[in-house]
Design a protein around this nucleic acid. Structure first.
Length: 630
DNA sequence: ATACATACC
DNA sequence: TACTGGTATGTAT
């Protein structure tokens, strides 16, 4: 694609038409399939096949027990509602509105948060060495499907699904014509590829957070602020400056000409620019970045661009695969984007919360906002606050909370065939302890609390933990194994030695030693006495309800959110500087916008805008260097 | 401090 | 036949 067409297509793909709606099945059992795009899929047939094939397996029984527990929880909440003070709605709503106003005031007014999500990452990696597979429904993983290609997704095959169910789905829905291909996972390859991706992304935000191998959270404010206020800098220069590297190149030269010692918040610079300028520049830069990722790795990714990460995360899914979507920061644009979405789309709302909310008639985010008083009445403070935030499109990160502190726990777990002898089981546990110890040594972690996780053959999970006294820390394989074995022995005693058949064992260490904990303590084996028995509770299973298909998932944001050449009666305006062009001279317009964004006209534009709005923070010749901020 | 549930990829 | 693994957090006790 030529340079002229580029921006137009960025804008186009960023605003293009909404994708079709998802439904959300409320049965926990089936609900595996509603977070990411499953369009053109016969959900009814798929669910029927999954249910039939799952039959009455132990796994399904366990799922139904969980489902039943949630039903109990729901009826308890209904009781709370029935017994609530008659004025509950007025009172809770008042409190919510105060909180919501605070949240909204803290939400950034420019879109600079970007969530990058690789498209079907594991599968895409696998396909690079097996290109022939793209013609078949294929997935990574055997017993458990980690990811699938789009061909397989059409048949309802998706991550977290049991392998054999995927086989059945493909066989049946293709009328026996197709067969699901399984590929072994290769985490060394994924890690390598992930590092390649990270290397590219780091050029745009060296402080990015990789949330997993295929997902990154990035703040583009610094990059954009530099790009806009230093129009003559190219990407390499900006990225060197961002990284704090002093290569002695042009960047360094320009750097030294700046006003030193003045800290300027990059976000402040963006705020002083028209929102459309920031949006257009961000869309363009992110598009370039995705191109570089593809060049470097041969893999495509999708991105969500928004004023905060809650919105960016949701947006990253909208144009998947290989697309991007921008949510403008105005309240109207955010609500227009967010309100029609099913609450399940919000990160942090999973199957269970979705079902509970659904039981109170809350299906989409608008409902969640409308019923904020009810939510506040029913949920604990932390949950209610989170849900209120989400319903108005705010996230805790808006208020400066950073969740990237030190690691809080580390663990290893392994699934195996149930029904092994006690000796074998203990041996498994020791293997895990050794592996975990190794990992802790690598990371120099010392822990005070050891938790053993045991999944019974029934899929019920038991956790039991033990802490050693203050000042004592564990790391060695011997110590971990000794504690873990002793804890597991207690569990076995409490559950009775016969029916004690496990399908999974895990050990997790928490309560790490930090800097304040002083010098290294000698390793002491400290085994506490066994505690009294605890019984596992079982809940009755109950059928769960279905939710009706939702109306519309995404809405077209052309007007609200995005710089788009504004067309009125044969005249088109540049989204950046509002300069007018004849509508039939699209090429000329694109060339102009390109130049505009590349910096040539930015200063002039900014100057005009600033004069207009009398907020001349970065205007004209007295513009500040922002280099020293980092 | 402990146990369990929920959520994310 | 057959349903992961790793980390963090929230809630209850």
């Amino acid at each position: 694609m030529n340079e002229k067409g580029k921006l137009a297509s960025v804008v186009e793909e960023t605003v293009a038409a909404p994708t079709p709606p998802n439904e959300s099945a409320s049965a926990l059992v089936i609900a595996a399939s509603d977070k990411a795009g499953m369009e053109n899929v016969d959900r009814g047939r798929i669910n029927a096949i999954i249910l039939r094939e799952s039959g009455d397996s132990l796994f399904m029984r366990q799922q139904r027990r969980r489902d039943g527990r949630v039903d109990v929880q729901i009826s308890e909440l209904k009781r709370v509602l029935a017994n609530a003070d008659p004025n509950w709605r007025r009172d809770h709503e008042a409190r919510c509105d105060v909180d919501a106003a605070v949240f909204l005031a803290a939400r950034p007014t420019r879109s600079a948060c970007v969530v990058v999500d690789m498209d079907m990452f594991y599968m895409a990696c696998a396909l690079q060495s097996r290109p022939h597979l793209s013609g078949f429904p294929a997935c990574v993983g055997h017993g458990m499907i980690l990811t699938s290609n789009y061909r397989a997704r059409k048949y309802g095959v998706r991550s977290a699904m049991a392998g054999w169910i995927g086989d059945k789905l493909v066989a049946e829905l293709s009328g026996g014509k197709e067969r699901l291909v399984h590929v072994d996972s290769d985490f060394d390859l994924y890690k390598k590829k992930s590092n390649d991706v990270k290397a590219v992304l780091t050029e745009y935000d060296p402080r990015l957070k990789m949330c997993s191998l295929d997902e990154a959270y990035m703040d583009f404010a610094p990059y954009l602020a530099l790009k806009i206020s230093e129009p003559e800098w190219d990407h390499d220069t900006i990225s060197r400056v961002l990284g704090g590297v002093d290569p002695g190149g042009e960047g360094a030269t320009v750097c030294t000409t700046g006003v030193r010692g003045v800290l300027v918040d990059p976000y402040e610079i963006l705020s002083s620019l028209p929102e459309r300028v920031c949006a257009a520049a961000l869309a363009r830069v992110v598009h370039e970045m995705r191109g570089r990722v593809r060049e470097r790795t041969g893999l495509t990714c999708s991105a969500g661009l928004a004023p905060n990460f809650l919105l960016a995360k949701i947006a990253s899914d909208v144009r998947k695969p290989d697309g991007q979507y921008l949510v403008s920061p105005s309240h109207d644009a955010v609500n227009y984007f967010l309100h029609p979405l099913p609450v399940r789309k919000v990160g942090g709302i999973g199957r269970v919360r979705d079902k509970i909310l659904g039981a109170f008639g809350i299906k989409n985010v608008k409902d969640l906002y409308r019923e904020r008083a009810l939510v506040h009445l029913l949920f604990k403070e932390a949950s209610a606050s989170f849900l209120l935030r989400a319903s108005v499109g705010c996230s805790s990160s808006d208020s400066g909370e950073s969740d990237d502190g030190p690691q809080k726990g580390i663990g290893k777990e392994r699934t195996f065939r149930a029904g092994q002898s006690w000796a074998e089981t203990v041996s498994r546990l020791e293997d895990i302890a050794l592996g975990l110890s190794e990992a802790m040594q690598k990371k120099e972690l010392w822990a005070r609390t050891v938790t053993v996780k045991a999944k019974l053959h029934t899929f019920d999970v038991v956790n039991r933990s033990r802490s050693v006294p203050r000042g004592v820390f564990l790391q060695s394989g011997q110590d971990l194994a000794a504690h873990a074995t002793s804890i597991l022995d207690e569990i076995r005693r409490d559950f009775g030695k016969e029916q004690f058949s496990l399908r999974l064992l895990g050990i997790r260490c928490t309560n790490f030693k930090d800097a304040q904990d002083g010098e290294e303590t000698s390793i002491v084996k400290y085994l506490t006495k066994p505690r009294s028995a605890t019984a596992a509770a079982a809940a009755q299973s109950q059928p769960s309800e279905k939710s009706p298909p939702s109306e519309k998932k995404y809405v077209d944001l052309t007007e609200e959110s995005v710089p788009d050449p504004i067309q009125t009666a044969g005249i088109v305006s540049c989204p950046v500087c509002q300069r007018k062009f004849p509508a039939d001279e699209n090429d000329a317009l694109n060339v102009h916008i390109d130049a505009c964004l590349s910096g040539g006209l930015i200063r002039e534009t900014v100057h005009e805008e600033s004069l207009r709005h009398e907020q001349s923070k970065v205007a004209g010749g007295k513009r500040r260097r922002i280099t020293d901020f980092w």
